[in-house]
Computed example of a mutant assay.
Amino acid sequence: MADRLVPVISLRDFEARREEITKQLVEAAEFAGFFTLVDHGISVEEIEAQFALSKTFFDLPAEVKGRTPHDRKTNNGWEYKAQLRPSTGTYDQKESLWLMRSSQWPSDTDVPEFRKTTEHFMAKCASVSNQVLSCFSAALGFPEGHLTTANDVTRADCMTQLRLIHYPPSENAVGTWRAGSHTDIGCLTLLFQRDGEDGLEICPGRESYTSFGMGDTFTPLPAKTGPIVVNIGDMLMAWSDDRLKSNFHRVRAKDTGKSPSRYSIAYFNQGRKDFLLQGPEKKYPPITVGEWFAESVARNFGRQVATSPS
């Protein structure tokens, strides 16, 4: 079921196959809102190295992790079970480290080579994102570079973030939510998982980015090291005049026995704060990305808030 619902798309020979890849990406985004990328240029070794750094950081004592404190204003830094989901009425059972190019970083004393390795990984994520966004730009009728310019990480107003996530092991969480049902506020999310650390479930069925509607069935998406799970966020759904779907997803504990640690890494393309957002058909009025974020949080507050991915 998951293989049919979430197509696997190869980025091999990207320039030569751009038209074919664009068609595959759009078909996936119009229905599932999710797809899996392979042959994307980030090696398994690079992904494993980033996960190793993530584990090293999360294995540190709380007082050491707290040296990179979470800042509510910028949403950067380390947080522990701090994300309340209106969809469940409980806090997500995870800790995470939010990072931007300009944010505070863990020191090399605490985690050797952390910033150097992570910035290299983020650059690779930006490259993959730009390939996908350039395809969507053309398919939607924008200039090819429109969405990549809107998410240019070299610009000071870019809000793109990397999130390292750890779900601690749980003894008695059978069938509960490690992360409650939600969509992503941003433009495009790249999610990295590790072999055997399952739990992600997805649910198509949303027709408007302002609605909270979804289908009846959540489908598990097995975790694998190497492929990148990509999903459309609310921002890109609005930018496409609701053509590309930002659908609900969650992380569920095992139905039997103990749920082991789960690690994931999410790269959020979140746009440039001062960039103007409006779809080609002008279904919604023009708004800056920064204003759109503020309105999205206000619109979703108290309901199924669109926030970060799994």
Rank of each mutant, 00 (worst) to 15 (best):
G89A: 08
T149A: 15
G226W: 05
L191N: 02
K94T: 03
D3E: 15
D59S: 14
R115L: 12
F136L: 14
F192A: 02
W78C: 04
S54I: 02
V289A: 04
A294T: 08
F192I: 02
T183D: 01
W98V: 10
R250C: 11
L60T: 01
V132K: 00
K81I: 09
E46H: 05
T88E: 10
R67I: 09
L147M: 13
K245H: 12
V230Q: 02
S54Q: 10
S96Y: 13
Q193K: 02
C125K: 02
H70N: 09
F57K: 00
A16R: 13
R243D: 05
A156W: 01
R303S: 13
A173G: 11
P61D: 09
A32T: 10
V111C: 07
V64T: 15
D157Y: 00
D152M: 02
V251R: 08
E119Y: 09
H182V: 00
R272Y: 03
D3F: 12
T256H: 14
A123S: 15
L200C: 04
P112A: 05
Y263K: 04
P106I: 01
D71Y: 00
P227C: 02
D92L: 00
G233P: 07
E113K: 14
S134H: 06
E27G: 05
G77P: 06
S181E: 13
M237I: 13
V44K: 15
S261H: 15
I265Q: 01
D255T: 11
G302F: 03
Q161P: 02
G233K: 02
K73I: 11
R194Y: 07
R272T: 11
Q83D: 15
L60G: 08
P7G: 05
K273F: 12
L162W: 00
S134I: 05
T68K: 03
S261V: 05
L147E: 02
Y267A: 06
G213T: 13
G226S: 06
T149C: 14
E30A: 12
Y167V: 05
S43G: 06
G257P: 11
E295I: 00
M237K: 04
L25D: 03
K224Q: 14
Y80C: 11
P7D: 09
A2K: 05
N151K: 06
N76P: 06
Q50T: 14
P204D: 07
D184S: 03
I165N: 12
T117V: 15
H120F: 14
L133W: 02
E171N: 07
V251P: 02
G271E: 01
K273L: 10
A173V: 05
T210H: 12
K65P: 04
V111M: 01
K282W: 00
Y167D: 00
Y80V: 10
Y91M: 09
A266I: 03
P69H: 00
A253P: 07
H249A: 06
E201Y: 03
P168G: 04
D39P: 09
Q278D: 01
P227G: 08
A294R: 11
K81T: 10
F57R: 00
A29V: 08
M1K: 11
A123H: 14
P285R: 01
H146M: 15
P285E: 03
G213Y: 05
V111L: 07
